[in-house]
Amino acid sequence: MKHTINLLVENNVGSLLRIAGMFSGRGFNIDSISVGASEEEGLSRMTIVTHGDDEIIEQINKQLNKCINVVKVFDLTGEAFVHRELALIKVQATPVERSEIMQIVEVFRAKIIDLSPTALTVEATGTEDKISAIISMLQPFGLKAVSRTGRIALKREFQGVTV
């Protein structure tokens, strides 16, 4: 089963390496990993998406807790949480194709953030499914480059209420 794990870790390269190394050394899966500043100075927030059976997930949580520079581990799975992914998608686009692409972009509530005579870059935010959907819609025009951040997530403040 897929699990989304949120971590607060000490803000240094060593933390990231220890965590990533622990996953590879123990043969755990990483579907995505994203890391950036948190609300607290000196701490980064990391979101890891992984999968495995219950025993593996239990081990992952315990091994993460064991890392000295991991301050907090929350497995969000089973809780109400919000999550998003950001993608930048560079698509080949002749001036004629632009309007068609802009329609797609609008439907997905995405944005065009860069434009050239032969290509444009789309910024899309949403769930992984939505990102995959817009990518597949843009594919026929010719994808020049795709960059996805992987999931970031936070627990909902009011459990049980979905907005």
């Binding site: 060593g14 390496l17 220890r18 190394g21 622990m22 050394g25 000295i68 520079n69």
Partner: peptide, 14 residues
């Protein structure tokens, strides 16, 4: 050496 020993130390510092 920090990189080499990271998986075999409880922790390490530079």
């Amino acid at each position: 050496i920090l990189g080499i020993t990271r998986p075999i130390t409880k922790h390490s510092y530079l």
